[in-house]
Write a protein that binds this DNA or RNA. Sequence first.
DNA 1: CACAACAAGATACTGCCACTATCCAGTAGC
DNA 2: GCTACTGGATAGTGGCAGTATCTTGTTGTG
Lengths: 242, 242
Amino acid sequence: MKISELSRRTGVPVASIKYFLRQGLLPAGRATAATLAEYGEEHAQRLRLIKALTTLGGLSIAATRDVLGALDQADTTEGALGAVSYALPVPVAAQSAAADEAEAEAAATAAAEVSELLAALDWRAPDTSPHVEGLAVALKELRRLDAGYAPGELAAYARLAESVARLDLERAAGLDDPVALAERAVIVFAICAPVFELLRRLAQEDQVRRRVAAEGTAFGTGRGPAAPGLADGSPPATSGRC
Amino acid sequence: MKISELSRRTGVPVASIKYFLRQGLLPAGRATAATLAEYGEEHAQRLRLIKALTTLGGLSIAATRDVLGALDQADTTEGALGAVSYALPVPVAAQSAAADEAEAEAAATAAAEVSELLAALDWRAPDTSPHVEGLAVALKELRRLDAGYAPGELAAYARLAESVARLDLERAAGLDDPVALAERAVIVFAICAPVFELLRRLAQEDQVRRRVAAEGTAFGTGRGPAAPGLADGSPPATSGRC
DNA sequence: CACAACAAGATACTGCCACTATCCAGTAGC
DNA sequence: GCTACTGGATAGTGGCAGTATCTTGTTGTG
């Protein structure tokens, strides 16, 4: 099929398809002449995957390229899973080394806390994993905001995360065809995170509603209604564009 | 304190502070003269919150403004929670109405599925909630990719999400001061999502490692190693920049 | 008081990203 | 032969998140 038909069938503009080709997200078609190439069904499927990764998964073009590269290069499915997991962007960016001394100490404390957690859960992960680093950074920053996790809280979250991951793996493992399996794994790892986030938000909404219904206007501590806000400053101007 | 000291104490460049002021994220200081203003401790705290929302929470400037506005304007803490929840960007953007007919049908099916799920879980959420819409879009797209959730799978995820939300609410409710409580709620709702995502990734890594150890090279279906890839296309060129 | 150093606010500029448009030489098919 | 279309290269667009510069005014030290 020609590029125009590929565009028609996937709903992606021709210019965008060309852009993805340039960026190496989509393999080139089989050239039949100097100015003609033939695309197949696998290009349409790949294009759908690209669209899903970028719009649903929120991945950048570079991240998408890395993920697809991992998918194509891995010899084994586990290899693909690992590579994809590492190719996905880490939600919390690693920070540059802290110049401050207190900062460095806080970072070390957080890192120790993460190691301890992993040991307690018997999760095996290398210290160099971007996820381990990101977790340490996040914990450090949360403590700076006086919103650190109480001891045990983080472990409770971790146990739930483990259950979620078990479901993920089951979902990723339920296919026979290895190619389809690797692709499914990508989808589960990359795209299902937003779905879970949505479920969590809905659950939060429901919980808030329940507590309001149960306790009247008060919430949590049983205090009356309050109007929080900055003590002296005026609130930000408009909520729309600037 | 002057702007330079505010900058020194928070590590945010003066130019960026001015930018946040312009964008309405940070209330103006108390003007003491035509070219002088005084900032207080609450400005430093707000600045730390802004930094956390943008770098840890991954929020855009506009989204941060909305969240902070919700926090400042809400009369009650539950109001703040609800407003913040709606001000947070939805991970899956709502799509424009489908021109295609089959597309519209798929959207309707997905919407029905979501309603059913909510009813089964006894979660009360308005159909107009952006989270409900986002979930429907995500389910529709996943089905298009042949990676839809099997019946019951989604409910299993939802139950776990409910447990996570319960932990969230406990964390958000554990303070006496209403101002601090609202701020904590923002942090829990906005920033802890990436933390959970990291935990999930680590758990996934561990699960993969366990399965590999248990089953040798094979995975899931017990098939031998495979080298997936596009049937005819060459793999994407380089993994670095273009 | 003079003057260097800094402050506030307005405006303009920068770099990055994800496209999008234009141009060109080369088929395809009537 | 003529028109419509193709692949490929190059350049342009619009949005975002700052960053830099400039002007005017203030401070406080000698």
